[in-house]
């Protein structure tokens, strides 16, 4: 059976964050609030912040979407929603294809475990079987360039070495849908060059790329479509050639 083509479809997507005040995190205070008659607690300690409102988005294979917008405009939230972590409050998100979210490279990195163990763990979280991870281990190890250090606990690594490991492990899985929050640049100059090549390959293989970035040149380089977010409201998806108009708007 042929799998359906890679696609992303968001319809009337609205996402609200309940803000649980520090107060609300204590059961005692929660109960105390009820006891005083709920004058302050009429909202049960949570205020909603609408992070994304009424967003519609259709992407198909070959689409390279750049997300621009100020801090707090909802870019990362959208990426997290697309990764399946956040549930919409209204509307729907449907994604066909295997998703890889390179949002936080340090996801699942355990500093006390060895480099090898961390690669294994990261691979397992990304959906590889133990066998598949083992099959890729040599390639990942070689790419990281860490050699004998992989048998040592990650806490003994320098920051740059940790970044190398995290990058090598995170980019080892092929994905149909690649979600990225800022183009990842890690390590020293040499590593940045090969890391860049590896990311490009990953992007080429992926059916769809969604990249959030503040770097206009970067977006021009990798994306063919662009969408601007403003306070949770998205502009229509436009061609990358119209990026300047979108920025001026």
């Amino acid at each position: 059976m042929k799998p359906p083509p890679v696609s992303i479809s968001c319809q009337n997507l609205t996402l609200r964050f309940p803000v649980y005040g520090i107060d609300a995190k204590s059961l005692k205070k929660h109960l105390a609030k009820i006891a005083v008659g709920g004058r302050l607690g009429s909202h049960h300690g949570s205020t909603d912040v609408t992070a994304i409102s009424n967003l519609n988005l259709e992407l198909k294979a070959g689409d390279r979407l750049g997300l621009i917008g100020h801090n707090g405009s909802g870019k990362t939230t959208l990426l997290r929603a697309l990764s399946g972590a956040y549930e919409p409050d209204e509307g729907s998100i449907e994604v066909q294809g295997h998703i890889a979210a390179l949002l936080d490279l340090n996801l699942g990195i355990d500093p006390t475990a060895t480099g090898f163990d961390n690669i294994r763990l990261r691979g397992r979280i990304a959906g590889l079987s133990a066998k598949e991870v083992d099959a890729r281990m040599d390639e990942i190890a070689e790419f990281s360039g860490l050699g004998p250090f992989l048998a040592m606990p990650v806490k003994t690594y320098s920051a740059g070495m940790q970044a190398r490991l995290a990058f090598a492990a995170a980019t080892a899985v092929e994905a149909d849908v690649l979600l990225m929050d800022e183009w990842i640049a890690v390590g020293d100059a040499d590593f940045q060059k090969i890391a860049h090549k590896r990311l490009l390959k990953l992007v080429e293989r992926a059916g769809i790329l969604v990249l959030a970035s503040h770097d206009v040149e970067l977006l021009r380089l990798y994306c063919n479509k662009v969408m601007r977010m403003d306070g949770g409201v998205a502009s229509p998806v436009t061609d990358i050639k119209k990026l300047d108009e979108l920025l001026a708007a």
């Binding site: 609205t14 509307g91 295997h98 959906g127 590889l128």
Partner: peptide, 13 residues
């Protein structure tokens, strides 16, 4: 890869 490749998330229904 044997993980689910279809994801659907919706609002309350």
């Amino acid at each position: 890869m044997d993980t689910a490749t279809h994801m659907l998330r919706t609002g309350r229904r």
